[in-house]
C-alpha cells in the first residue's frame, strides 16, 4: 500500500504532541517503529521559526514527517499553516485538519473539501482528517485527495471505533484508496480492529503520549497493528449465528436420542 507513491516502513503513524518530554517521545517513536510521525505547527510559533528546537528534535528521529494543521478552524488558517509547514519541514505532505466544532473537534467537512482543493492545486499531497461520511469522502477525492483519514472517534476521546458500520461501508466503497483511521483510538485492541476492517494504517497520539509508560504502550500498539494487519491478510473466517464444532463428529457413536456417547 502506497501513500502518494511512497511505501511506508510501518502502518503505524504516531503523533508527537503531549508527551512528558522529548526524550520520552523519542523512546516511544523507537518502540513503535512508526512509519510516519505527525507534528503540528502552531502558526504563531512558525513566524519567527521559534519552534525550531523542538522541530529539530522531531527531524532527528529520522522518521518521515507528516505535518498537520491541528487547531485550525478555518480554510484560510489551514492553508496558511500548510504553506508554513511545507517551508519548515520541506515536504509537500500535509495532514489537513479544519475543525468545525470546538467541543468534539469535529471536522468542518465543507471547509475541508475547499482547503483540499486549494492545497492540491498548490501542489500539496493532502491527507484530510474527515468523518466516515461517504459523500464527504467522494468530494474529498474529487477535490484531489488520494488518501482519506476518517476518524474512529473524536480526537483524544480514546473511544475506539465509534461507528463500525460507517467505517466498514467507507472501506468497501473505496477499496483502492489508502485509508488511515485517525483519532479516537485509545487502546491497542482498537488499532487491531481498524486493520481487521481493512484499513491501511492508524494514527495514534494521545493513547501513547498519555499512557503511564509511553514506550511500553508504543510497543503494544506496534504489536496490535501487526496482529490486525496479519489477521486481515489471512482472510478471517465468517461469523455464524450458531456453534460449529471444531472437531468432526462424523462417525461418532450416538445414543438413540442423538446425544454423543
Amino acid at each position: 500500500m502506497q501513500f502518494y507513491g511512497t511505501e511506508l516502513s510501518s502502518r503505524l503513524m504516531l503523533g508527537t504532541a503531549q508527551y512528558d518530554s522529548p526524550a520520552i517521545l523519542a523512546d516511544a517513536v523507537k518502540a513503535a517503529q512508526a512509519g510516519v510521525v505527525t507534528v503540528s505547527l502552531r502558526r504563531e510559533a512558525a513566524g519567527a521559526q521559534a519552534g525550531q528546537a523542538f522541530w529539530s528534535l522531531i527531524q532527528s528521529l529520522n522518521v518521515p514527517i507528516l505535518p498537520n494543521t491541528a487547531g485550525c478552524h478555518g480554510v484560510r488558517e489551514a492553508v496558511t499553516t500548510a504553506q508554513m509547514a511545507r517551508d519548515v519541514f520541506g515536504t509537500d505532505w500535509i495532514k489537513l485538519e479544519v475543525i468545525g466544532q470546538g467541543d468534539l473537534l469535529q471536522p468542518d467537512v465543507f471547509g475541508l473539501v475547499e482547503a483540499t482543493r486549494i492545497l492540491t492545486e498548490d501542489g500539496f499531497k493532502v491527507f484530510p482528517y474527515t468523518t466516515e461520511d461517504l459523500v464527504v469522502a467522494e468530494r474529498l477525492l474529487r477535490a484531489g485527495a488520494e488518501v482519506l483519514m476518517p476518524w474512529g472517534a473524536p480526537i483524544g476521546s480514546g473511544r475506539g471505533l465509534n461507528n463500525l458500520f460507517g467505517l466498514r461501508a467507507l472501506r468497501s466503497h473505496f477499496p483502492d484508496i489508502p485509508m488511515v483511521v485517525d483519532a479516537g483510538i485509545g487502546k491497542p485492541s482498537h488499532a487491531t480492529a481498524a486493520f481487521e476492517l481493512g484499513y491501511d494504517a492508524v494514527l495514534i497520539n494521545t493513547a501513547v503520549a498519555k499512557a503511564g509508560n509511553s514506550a511500553q504502550m508504543a510497543t503494544a500498539f506496534r504489536l496490535a497493528c501487526e496482529a490486525g494487519l496479519a489477521g486481515f491478510a489471512a482472510d478471517p473466517m465468517e461469523e455464524r449465528d450458531m456453534a460449529v464444532p471444531s472437531t468432526p463428529t462424523l462417525g461418532l457413536a450416538r445414543s438413540l436420542g442423538g446425544e454423543m456417547l
Binding site: 502552531r42 504563531e44 510559533a45 519567527a48 521559534a50 519552534g51 525550531q52 528546537a53 523542538f54
Partner: peptide, 13 residues
C-alpha cells in the same frame, strides 16, 4: 506549555 523559543508577549489564544 508551548514548544517554542518565541519571546513575544502573551498571545490572545
Amino acid at each position: 506549555m508551548v514548544e517554542s523559543d518565541d519571546t513575544r508577549g502573551i498571545t490572545v489564544r
